[in-house]
């Protein structure tokens, strides 16, 4: 139904089993962060892995999704699922705007334009009254899911986040393995040829970009609800860098890569936090090593070793 190959089905079952059992072993809040970041990275991977578009501005969607979800939950009193959808809608609108501008240029320029636009969003968040400037939006209530299920307990919240992640993951996978996804891959491999076959490649890129931005907004919104706070950190360009690192480390254009990358990078940020700037140095070093020595990432290399597509 979702176009999983056999090896991917096995991988998916293993992932589901891990999601179901890990909260009994590990701290649920940490796991929720991993899942939010993983969804963010999967959304990013749709662009870099399958369309070949390098967006260096995904923090804008993630961060703004977080701000608007927090605002909706706190000021408008919306239920969590609606607040998160508001976050997704903001991601979509911003994504439409970014894509409309950035698709005019290609390759490296595309990366620079998305980066610059995201920085504009960052400065907007710094100045706009509703974001609370340096303080961010704090004490965001988690509320009751569908108005019934209280999310105050970490376990309820965890299952909600896991549900959102799995829906997003399956949706992305479905898109990649649909006829639409095949056209995206054709654009990645050879854009002029795709054009000559009659595909309006700019439209395809735009749709993929909006989809990716929407899911990034949802991921950011979910994270804001989990932690009850939306801050400038999530709109900062370092967050855009993080998601690039996660996807590169896990494996560009692999379906499980971003998830594995998210697990590694978030754990690293969590457990090495006491070493301050060494985290940045380590992340930078991982970037350099990945680019020079293993460009296929963890899952890509594993897949190559087992001769499977993961």
């Amino acid at each position: 139904m979702f176009g999983f190959s056999r090896s991917q089905s096995i991988g998916f079952v293993i992932m589901l089993a891990l999601i179901a059992t890990s909260p009994f072993v590990l701290y649920p809040v940490f796991l929720m962060k991993v899942l939010c970041v993983a969804l963010f990275a999967c959304a990013f991977n749709l662009l870099i892995g399958y369309v070949g578009l390098m967006s260096f501005g995904h923090a804008a969607f993630y961060g703004m999704g977080g701000y608007l979800t927090a605002h909706a939950a706190k000021e408008w009193g919306l239920t969590p699922e609606l607040s998160i959808l508001v976050g997704g809608a903001v991601g979509a609108v911003l994504g439409l705007l970014f894509a409309w501008l950035a698709i005019r240029r290609q390759g490296l320029y595309f990366a620079m334009i998305t980066l610059a636009l995201a920085q504009m969003v960052y400065f907007f968040c710094l100045e706009a009254p509703f974001t609370g400037g340096e303080n961010g939006i704090q004490q965001v209530p988690r509320g009751n899911l569908f108005g019934i299920i209280p999310l105050g307990s970490d376990m309820n919240m965890y299952w909600t986040v896991a549900g959102i992640f799995i829906i997003g993951f399956l949706l992305l996978h479905r898109v990649v393995y649909s006829p639409f996804g095949q056209v995206l891959k054709a654009i990645r491999e050879n854009e002029p040829r795709a054009i000559s076959l009659g595909y309006r490649t700019d439209d395809y890129k735009q749709i993929a970009f909006v989809l990716s931005a929407t899911l990034a907004g949802i991921a950011g919104g979910t994270k804001a609800l989990v932690f009850g706070i939306a801050t400038l950190t999530d709109v900062n360009f370092t967050t855009s860098g993080d998601v690039v690192l996660i996807t590169l480390l896990g494996g560009l254009g692999t379906i499980f890569g971003p998830v594995v990358g998210a697990l590694v990078v978030v754990s690293m940020e969590n457990y090495l936090a006491q070493f301050g700037s060494w985290v940045t140095v380590t992340q930078g070093a991982i970037f350099v090593v990945c680019v020079l020595l293993f460009r296929r990432g963890v899952i890509g290399e594993l897949g190559g070793l087992l001769k499977l597509s993961l």
Partner: peptide, 27 residues
Amino acid sequence: RLYKLDHLYGLLLTFGLAMVIEGLFRN
């Protein structure tokens, strides 16, 4: 080492280098 590859890798490499350099100086 990257001249024969997609130009994006150059961007990623130099981004990583920037992180290493800035992190070291901040330390």
